[in-house]
Nucleic acid binder design. Sequence first.
DNA 1: TTGTATGCGTTATCAT
DNA 2: ATGATAACGCATACAA
Lengths: 351, 351
Amino acid sequence: MDSDGRVTRATRASLSDVARAADVSLATASRVVSGSAYPVSAAKRRRVEEAVRATGYVPDPVAQAMVRGRTRTIGVIAGALSDPYFTEVTRGIEESARRAGFLTILCSTDRDPGRELAYLELLRGHRATGAVLIGGAYDGHETRRAFIDEATRAGADGMRVIALAQRPGLEGIQSVAVDDRAMLRDLAADLADLGHRTFAFVAPPDGFSTAELRHEGLREALVARGLPEPAIYRTGFDFDAGRRAALRMLRGQLPDVAIGFSDESAIGMLMTFRDEGVGVPAHVSIAGVDGTREAEFLGLTTVSVPMYEMGVTATASIIGTAEGFGAPTTVMPHRVVLRQTTRRRPSEVEQ
Amino acid sequence: MDSDGRVTRATRASLSDVARAADVSLATASRVVSGSAYPVSAAKRRRVEEAVRATGYVPDPVAQAMVRGRTRTIGVIAGALSDPYFTEVTRGIEESARRAGFLTILCSTDRDPGRELAYLELLRGHRATGAVLIGGAYDGHETRRAFIDEATRAGADGMRVIALAQRPGLEGIQSVAVDDRAMLRDLAADLADLGHRTFAFVAPPDGFSTAELRHEGLREALVARGLPEPAIYRTGFDFDAGRRAALRMLRGQLPDVAIGFSDESAIGMLMTFRDEGVGVPAHVSIAGVDGTREAEFLGLTTVSVPMYEMGVTATASIIGTAEGFGAPTTVMPHRVVLRQTTRRRPSEVEQ
DNA sequence: TTGTATGCGTTATCAT
DNA sequence: ATGATAACGCATACAA
């Protein structure tokens, strides 16, 4: 019931209702409500504005999308919502999208390339203004081709696709990324300075360019110091990958420090070692990558990247408010954060 | 370029393209692609299907929404994306929405009632099928009224609104909730069994029904055992609220155990005590509510609630696949999880 | 400056 | 069984 005691109308006021109430044509009403530059006399303008208020008119985004061909939405295609890396980036996207009057569509793929593709199609269908690809699924060989095709099609349809990491085959599309190689190089350098000599790296399977780059950066730093090659554990990038890697390490030789592809996998190792009674950093050091809050809580050494800002930057690039708009790649800064899981080791290693 | 070497058309095939290609009427084409029960001859049906394949036709959700009056979307209005409680519930929503072919619209309010209202309006404008209210903002007195009005209007418009906690004034709308009173009662009972005698509770300001219920449950348990009333710190429900509460406790008398409204605030206390050199649980025990992964990582005692399942249940209720559809309130189970932050205390309290 | 009319892509109603 | 055709709500090209 409204204030008059009558039952509230279930149907909303449309522009024609407004036009009728203001006694103007549909076109005139449209011109004032849509903020068109088209000239409208002050008198009629006022009448329309009054009618808008009286009817409680709100433009219908669906109808607008119908005629404009675009919805004011941005899709975020994320690998895993449980990983704070993704939620933090998503937070940046949602925040800046909202500011610009865009709605954020959340698409979680659970690292499934099929879903990633399906969501991209869906977003194109919904005429989203753009999509942000965070992380990404395993780059399967058959699916990759289909994905690239769809991304191309989306681009041809006028949808802006931004990747948060460069992906093989998708070099063509814009990206907001970090310097993967330098990140691991810097981290390894600091860890070596702390006295670590044997390194392990937990990474996703082949075909992941970010993982390859990080691996290379790590190797470069070690080689430059005459340290042995890192042992590599290809178990993945999530919590469980860390857990599996840690268990395998326990069956063999523990490295001085084990580095995870992400904080998630590093925490997986941390928890596993702790459960198994292996002291961190007493018996093994652990480090991750991302700079999530969990890493902070747990005192995990990591390479911090500006997740939130990456989301903001990607969104700006889609909406068109970015300064360096159109730049193929924006590289974001990173920062090594040394914490308790990699405390300085005694020079004489206790194995 | 497609396989023929021609440039791919930027515009997508519409139903009329399909109809033309199949040499049938628009109506017939619509009937087969929309899976209508309306009879269509096998021959034409086949021709249409072929044309769909040939043209790569995909129905336009925007146009469908235009005529149906609804978009296949579900809005999730969450208080804070950085809190794993929200992301976990959201995960459940997104997952089940996706399964049903719905898109999830992410709306983060940052605990701002104004934004909450704005988003609800926006979702109604976008003709979302439903909205899930997670958590919620501070229930300001002026804004509350506006919010209730808007929720009512949304309901009248056919939008399904589900709250994940009962809110004053919104008793009318469906909810998927937990038994707030019992949760704290159970937690307090277990903590008392461990030897804790003085309790503190960190809660949001007045007007938050969940907080009131939890407070009452806590009091009930203490009174039943002849223990003193809990000290209450009204600093809020997030990480920083925990931090502020801990700082205040440090200036006065430490309780045997401090319980946070959420895991977030409990972790805020935990980190602060740790930073200040106060042992947990040696000098003070800490417990939270939610059962997030962070609580698990940190060994935080908590009351675990089925966040993911709550999201799933809410979604099912919106889409209409719920068993107990239409039930005003679904109460989800909870479980006290005792961990390291509340290890059994010596009977002689060391103050 | 104002208004009329068309189209966006679909579904549904009505004849046939 | 099939096919015109009218909505849905809006923006705009065109006419006046």
